[in-house]
Amino acid sequence: MRTERNLTRLDRVFARLDREPERPAHIDVPKMSRHRVVLFAATLAFYLAIVWAVAITSWLVRFDWQVMFFRPYQQWPEIHAFLDYYVVLGQRGPTAVMVAAWLGWRSWRQHTLRPLLTLGASLLLLNITVGAAKLGMGRLGPHYAITIGSNEMGLGGDIFPSGHTANAVVTWGILAYLASTPRARRWLSALSAVTSLGVGLTTVYLGTHWLSDVLLGWAAGLLILLALPWCEPLIARSEAGIFSLRDLWRARRGRATTAPLPAPVMSPLTASVAGEPPTRETVTPRPSRSPVHLTPGPHTARSERTPVTPVGSRRPPHPDRPAHLDRPGRTAAAAAKARPLTGG
């Protein structure tokens, strides 16, 4: 009795990928709905509240100092080695390469550039907004703090907001943003939120960021994800422009490789046989010859000229005819002897 092999989860995943159509039409592009606008406004208010609380040296700054003096890396040293590797999930270089490889495969399979263009737009917004905030506020980190209890702002630092946290939110959240089903979007959203918060708390554990840096970085990354639908028209125009340039390049390359053969030149005789009047284009031009000037020679009489009559007889030999008559060098005497004599 033949039994079928039970499909594993990995087999089902690859089977689903094989059935995935090219340029899937069922994937909806997120739009700036009212719900998303409310979330964007609430996150922006939270962002500004964190900045204001740190700027006025409120209870949040005092809590930052308390966590720093607590030194979590000394309280739980057994997880230090693991968190040194886990924090890499928030570094821009490795995470961007991993996510770009996955989205590049999706772009190639679905014949669309939207995943890669969306990732590029989100990383560009991340560098501009978070970089400008870091340089504008200039807050020093816990390892470089000068005055106990101060907010350490405006001293030339670059850790507020946390770049690791914001990068983790954007890089892993873009997978949820580009998910093809609502269920996958919910699961990936929860996974990216836990991953980004874990990366932020790891930086607090290692003593490289204040807790307020992590909160502000999480809000900064979420603002970028919520604002991506405003960039969708520009992404669509960029994709159409790139594809049009690709088609134009292919057309020029095709014309260059398949150049048309030159039209055949018809002679006057061929044109008349084909029933076409010989035109200037069909007549083969004759090469011009230079005039030949003959040198005049002495005038001779007709009797002195060399005969040009072909030597020998043109008639075939007759079997009853004497052989000496067919020789080319016969003379008048031989011809006379061959004549029959008349008379007695």
Rank of each mutant, 00 (worst) to 15 (best):
R2F: 12
E4L: 13
T8R: 08
R9T: 12
F14L: 14
D18C: 04
R19G: 08
P24H: 04
P24Q: 05
H35T: 13
R36L: 08
V37D: 07
F40D: 01
F40V: 04
F40M: 13
A42M: 12
I50N: 03
I50D: 02
V51R: 03
A53R: 09
A53C: 10
A55F: 09
V61Q: 03
V61W: 03
D64G: 08
Q75V: 15
Q75R: 15
W76D: 07
H80N: 13
A81L: 10
L83T: 10
D84V: 02
Y86V: 04
V88K: 10
V88F: 12
Q91E: 14
W105K: 00
R106N: 06
R106L: 15
R109L: 09
R109C: 07
Q110D: 13
H111L: 12
L113Y: 14
A121F: 14
L123H: 04
L124T: 15
I128K: 02
T129I: 12
V130Q: 02
G136P: 00
L140R: 06
P142K: 01
P142Y: 00
Y144C: 04
S150K: 04
H164D: 01
A166T: 01
A166L: 00
N167M: 00
V170H: 03
I174K: 02
T181I: 04
T181L: 07
V194R: 07
S196A: 15
V204A: 00
L206H: 11
G207C: 05
G207M: 04
W210R: 04
W210L: 05
L223Q: 05
C231Y: 05
R237W: 11
L245V: 11
L248E: 00
R252H: 03
P260R: 07
L261G: 06
T270R: 10
A271E: 02
S272M: 12
E276C: 10
E276M: 15
P277E: 13
T282S: 15
V292M: 11
T300C: 08
R302V: 12
P310M: 05
V311K: 10
G312D: 06
R314C: 03
R321M: 09
T331K: 02
A334D: 14
A334W: 05
A334H: 09
A338I: 01
A338H: 08
R339T: 09
